[in-house]
């Protein structure tokens, strides 16, 4: 479904991503892991079209995305959240989600319906009329997911949505992801909560200093020497 081919990103002489290549099949839950500054979010930005890679390309369902901006990629079915949340702070929670639904050709009235349904699904229905800026961080992260879901994506990129959640909330998030996968959604997830992500990921891509150092099933990756070296002192199972 998604293919990243030899993507390299340079920031003023600094190589953030170096010849990264990986694929995700439709219906998969893939995890992108690695230490801070490994280039995970940069790779997300390349896939979602926020930045153009120095070289390499991204294919979505066989189509080269190079010439498309973020809006067009979103309309093709790639949704994303931001690690540093970007709510439309002055708008209500509902209106935040309405924006996502509107880009899929719904009328304003329909979009309000979709927005409410999406919020209900994420247990945020009671917050619909709160100002987005007034939400605590955990809920703002959930709003990111709601907004992206309202665009009915086929591939959803989640950037550290579990940071700062308590164990119950993490389990809820995992359950939701599994449920959405049952409905046919494909996931690429950046996550620092290893224990959580290893429960649901079917494919893991490990990034270190811009290079992909390992990829495979969670079992394969956790056995990988290089990966263990990178995570030294931070055993994968309990991090």
């Amino acid at each position: 479904m998604l293919e990243v081919r030899r993507v390299t990103v340079d920031f003023q002489g600094l190589r953030a991503v170096d010849e990264a290549s990986f694929r995700i099949e439709a219906g998969e839950i893939a995890a992108l892991i690695g230490p801070n500054g490994a280039g995970k979010t940069t790779l997300f930005n390349v896939v979602s079209g926020m930045i153009r890679p120095t070289s390499g390309e991204v294919l979505f369902e066989g189509r080269d995305l190079s010439r498309l901006g973020p809006a067009d990629r979103s309309r093709m079915g790639i949704g994303r959240t931001f690690q540093i949340v970007k709510p439309f702070g002055g708008l209500t929670v509902r209106d935040n989600v309405v924006v996502g639904a509107l880009t899929r050709g719904q009328s304003v009235a329909e979009a309000h319906g979709t927005a409410l349904a999406t919020l209900e699904r994420l247990n945020m229905g009671h917050l619909a009329d709160a100002r987005a800026a007034s939400l605590p961080l955990a809920l703002r992260k959930r709003l990111e997911v709601a907004r992206a879901l309202a665009t009915t994506p086929r591939l959803l990129l989640l950037d550290e949505i579990m940071g700062g959640l308590n164990p119950t909330e993490v389990n809820e998030a995992l359950a939701l992801i599994s449920e959405l996968r049952q409905e046919g959604l494909t996931f690429l997830i950046i996550e620092h909560n290893m224990q959580a992500i290893m429960q649901i990921a079917e494919r893991v891509v490990v990034l270190n200093q811009g290079c992909i150092i390992a990829q495979g099933t969670p079992a394969e990756v956790t056995q990988d020497r290089q990966v263990i070296a990178v995570y030294l002192g931070e055993p994968l199972e309990s991090a």
Partner: peptide
Amino acid sequence: IALREDEDAARCLG
């Protein structure tokens, strides 16, 4: 309004 509040987020929503 979405663009004014946060252009990046708005673009990524389409």
